[in-house]
């Protein structure tokens, strides 16, 4: 699993504004496409899957981290 600190710095590379866990993702300059790219970057391995249907519920950076964390740990063939 990607460490929390690492997640922040990874997110920071896609964000266009300063953020904390309560910042809405849009305010941090992240939209659905950057969220996908982030997911690809933090994923545990190539066979991990993204459940895009859950992405719609991601509103804040805190929720984003939770979602990314699930991708980071999921293994092949087990849809999130």
């Amino acid at each position: 699993m990607t460490a929390r600190l690492d997640l922040d710095s990874t997110i920071a590379r896609y964000a266009t504004a300063a953020f904390d866990d309560d910042t809405p993702v849009l305010d941090a300059g992240l939209e659905s496409l950057s969220l996908l790219r982030l997911a690809v970057e933090v994923a545990a391995d190539d066979d991990a899957e993204i459940d895009a249907t859950r992405m719609a519920g991601v509103r804040t950076i805190g929720e984003l981290k939770q979602w990314l964390a699930t991708i980071g740990v999921h293994a092949e063939g087990s849809p999130a």
């Binding site: 659905s32 496409l33 996908l36 790219r37 997911a39 690809v40 994923a43 391995d45 190539d46 066979d47 991990a48 899957e49 993204i50 459940d51 895009a52 991708i71 849809p79």
Partner: peptide, 11 residues
């Protein structure tokens, strides 16, 4: 169009 890719490798 809504992105529906699932596997990380597909990107």
């Amino acid at each position: 169009p809504f992105a529906a890719r699932r596997t990380i490798a597909s990107f």
